[in-house]
Write a protein that binds this DNA or RNA. Structure first.
Lengths: 305, 305
DNA sequence: GTCACTCCTGAAAGATATTTTCGGGTCCGG
DNA sequence: CCGGACCCGAAAATATCTTTCAGGAGTGAC
């Protein structure tokens, strides 16, 4: 008894169930029991050792090994590996049922999956819908700017701060405003080489539009990052960057996906500017990194050894 | 603060590459070599025995086993099984599409595509690596909290504010701190039913750890959102939520992906809490939405038609 | 600069798991 | 009823994985 198995077949990848059925007639009773268990529950079987599977099927280790051989594997170890692969495939196969809305009684694992999926979707949409010409123009304006002012309130205010934090790290003069009064008084002082950016999902947030209008009228280059390019804010914007709008629901406020979208746009702006001003940006980034190292404790997992 | 390894995570099925990246900094040199080989070629590695992998990486069997343990598996055998599953998934599934790093002379369209892809990847990794048990525990604590304090500086400070903004909208009493002194003086007043959350990518930001420690010692429930579950911050955390770490580069600072990852975690926390407190959260959300409507101009696209 | 200390590291012993061997048992045909 | 072929599982043999232990490199303190 040497090569019994089907025509020198290589280790079957996924066609295992089929192979079991094909070979079943040529199997002995005990081997059939083993093969059946294997085909019926790959995942469960993959978790078992030879002895375990032997006990489960009421047979012996030897029989299990013989079955594995018959199925085309060098031994049980390899069958088990293939089984694990099969299980993983099946697992991932039936995944994408996450399109549903988040419900009140969703288990926490579903919430994680759905949120992650939605935000991924938002990113894809944003990237697809972003006008690279407008983006390039905005980057050019920023790279040449003497001073940058960013307006945003609530969730968009955080995005504004994020952009400012980044710009500061590459040596740009930037400031974020969430106080509309201060923003306006500041906008009055802007001039031709300056850039003002308004971030508003709705495109109609008065507290943000007003300072942008003032900046616009004082000759600054103005940029709007909004989900509504037809909104009021666009009237005062030289460049409009459109963020995507995902469906919202009671448990998933619009702020969530608009924030994700806005952040991607802001990241693109930052990287674009960093590219254009690489000569000064690179050392500045390095320096800021260096300076922050001291704020971290030297011990306790901080050092990468 | 108990187990050193990643929050007692169950064997990760597909989040292996992410886990490797997350844990890599806390690994020793030899273990990193092993982890690298494993992450780089799951299929090839799955075919090797402990001894084989040890030889391939120029280390010893002991080191291989240690690495497997660190990655959350009981031993090498189980890691190998997971690897086989991963390989099978990759085989059948999508193209990995390894994105190159962002270069200084990349056209703007490439920058957008790469950033979007990287952030999507970060989201997937985070979702896969998030310990839902820890998350559930944190949600429970938050839902029952009398008062919530969130600590974070720099980029993490914005995430902290984002969480607070959300919690406020569903009627929770929450506050964000970026001033370490104020944070500490505030932490002193926390008591048993209160929750303190520290957000730090490095896990070793003193300005954030200190208030968390104080809160911990005063009996508050403490949560750490960090990319380094082995970091100092974990010593004072009742619940540890691990964010994922993407490879960074000169033009793509770590802050970018860690922020994305942190925001996903924060969103999950928020939705979880909103679910648990639906009775009060839903009307509060509706009310805040209503109240904000007046801040938008009635004309010019403000109304949703 | 030196010393003490911690922690990494691999060799080898020890424990498990897998494969092989071997003999009893069963079934069938004569 | 008897002989032969072939299943089958217990146990030995082997391979693989895990644990222990001591040497050694790197690090911080003095």
């Amino acid at each position: 008894m040497k090569e019994i198995f089907a025509g020198g077949a290589p280790p079957a990848p996924a066609a295992l169930a089929a192979k079991v059925r094909t070979l079943a007639p040529s199997m002995t009773r005990s081997m059939q029991r083993v093969a059946e268990a294997v085909a019926g529950d790959p995942a469960g079987t993959a978790a078992l050792t030879v002895t375990g599977l032997a006990e489960l099927t009421g047979t012996s280790e030897a029989t299990v090994v013989r079955t594995a051989r018959l199925l085309g594997y060098p031994g049980y170890r390899d069958l088990r590996l293939a089984l694990a692969g099969l299980a993983a495939q099946q697992q991932s196969g039936r995944a994408p049922a996450v399109t549903a809305d988040i419900a009140v009684d969703d288990p926490i694992a579903d919430v994680v999956a759905k949120l992650a999926y939605d935000e991924q979707q938002t990113l894809a949409d944003t990237a697809a819908g972003l006008d690279t010409v407008q983006l390039g123009a905005a980057v050019s304006a920023l790279a040449a700017a003497r001073r940058v002012e960013v307006y945003g309130v609530a969730a968009s205010g955080l995005v504004a701060q994020d952009l400012v934090q980044k710009l500061l790290r590459i040596g740009q003069v930037a400031h974020a405003h969430s106080d509309p009064h201060l923003a306006v008084t500041n906008a009055v002082t802007l001039r031709a080489k300056d850039v003002a950016i308004a971030i508003t999902h709705s495109g109609s947030t008065g507290d943000v539009i007003e300072p942008l209008r003032v900046a616009f009228e004082h000759g600054a280059t103005t940029v709007a990052i909004t989900g509504r390019p037809d909104g009021l804010v666009s009237q005062y914007a030289d460049h409009i960057l459109t963020t995507s709008t995902a469906r919202e629901s009671e448990l998933r406020p619009a702020a969530m996906s608009s924030r994700t979208s806005q952040l991607l746009v802001v990241d693109c702006l930052f990287v674009g500017v960093a590219q254009r001003t690489y000569e000064t940006a690179a050392p500045a980034l390095a320096a800021s990194y260096e300076a922050l190292a001291h704020r971290h404790s030297p011990r306790g997992g901080g050092g990468s050894r």
